[in-house]
Design a protein around this nucleic acid. Structure first.
Lengths: 193, 193
DNA sequence: CTCCTATAGAACACATTGTTGCGCAGTAGA
DNA sequence: TCTACTGCGCAACAATGTGTTCTATAGGAG
């Protein structure tokens, strides 16, 4: 028993519009009325699919907030691996819908348990990627295992997020170079004490 | 020609209530109606003071987001100054209304120009405080002026914000000690190259 | 005391949110 | 093809929130 194609078409068109509104105008503007106006789908139909505003917003969030898989690169040298990985992260913040809705997910996480899970899982994944780079560097003997890796990981990820979400400063190649330089410099000068 | 005490009293009572609503229930619930119900002040009076909902919310935000004056401590040593300053910052994030509404300001700033101003001004102030510490350390010769101070300032502030707002991890004394250690260690080992 | 002005309160128009009932049209199964 | 089902559009509706305007009242300044 297949699903009625009308259901699928409506859901897809509505969520396309909801996603666009979420990115362009913010979560507050993702309403049944706005989606209806944008798509031509009647409000009553939208209410049948998503009983209230929260359901609709959650659906729009979930559509965007799925973290992409980052293929690991840990073949060294450390600076190269780190630069590549943080470049991917920076690119996601700059050029994908994720970067645009991240601030709203952050806000939601302060009151909403599910949003908090989404973001902590997301960060756990990011941290693991960075940790793999440092672990590989330790394995190659580039740095020693007495450097405070956990702190460096946090700083590595914190900087681009802080810069983008809170300061609204540009994330560009030049900044990234300096950021990676600082991380590597610290890691190396604190090796083998 | 003094200002009518009625004006002052009304503004203060209204903003007190608006602030409480903002912290307890979120920005969405900060409305003229809600403030009116909470204070007994009539809606028309509130509209006279803040012509629309956005003005009212902005006023409530600004009331909380106004940086408290941090008495500067730059008499050294650098580690002590930095530890003290970041301790104040951490305390603000942990124990003041600012820590509670910061996520909402971050989210609002992604689409709202006024909120962005609030947060960038706030950060400018924080950054200036940290910079004063480094400048004093350079003046005393603790570190040299070829250290990338701007980057260190950003990391110094980014870490607690990232940890609190995005990771929802604890900001405690132990973490702060390690954070300050790392910053100072980097600044000193990269002095006088 | 008198003038000025802030406030309270009510009435109003308007938009948004959410619900319900009905006719229509597209879909699936025989 | 015929029939039963179901999603959709539409209109009407209540409830709430937003913003305006008017008048009467009460408190403050000179």
């Amino acid at each position: 028993m297949k699903e009625d194609p009308r259901l699928i078409a409506t859901r897809q068109a509505a969520l396309d519009a909801a996603q666009r509104i979420l990115v362009d105008e913010g979560v507050l503007h993702v309403t049944h009325g706005a989606v209806s106006k944008a798509t031509g789908i009647s409000r009553s139909t939208l209410y049948r699919h998503w009983p209230d505003a929260r359901c609709l917003r959650d659906a729009a969030f979930r559509r965007i907030a799925t973290p992409p898989n980052i293929p690991p690169k840990t073949d060294g040298p450390m600076r190269s691996d780190l630069r590549w990985l943080l470049g991917v992260l920076m690119g996601a913040l700059n050029d994908t819908p994720w970067g645009q809705i991240a601030p709203q997910v952050v806000a939601a996480a302060s009151t909403d348990e599910e949003a908090r899970l989404v973001i902590t899982e997301f960060m756990k994944d990011r941290f693991a990627s960075v940790e793999a780079v440092f672990a590989a560097a330790i394995g190659r003997g580039e740095i020693t295992d007495d450097v405070p890796v956990d702190q460096l990981i946090e700083l590595a990820v914190a900087a681009p997020y802080f810069r983008k979400l809170i300061r609204h400063e540009a994330l560009d190649e030049d900044w990234l170079d300096r950021h990676v330089d600082l991380l590597c410099s610290y890691a190396k000068t604190n090796s083998g004490r």
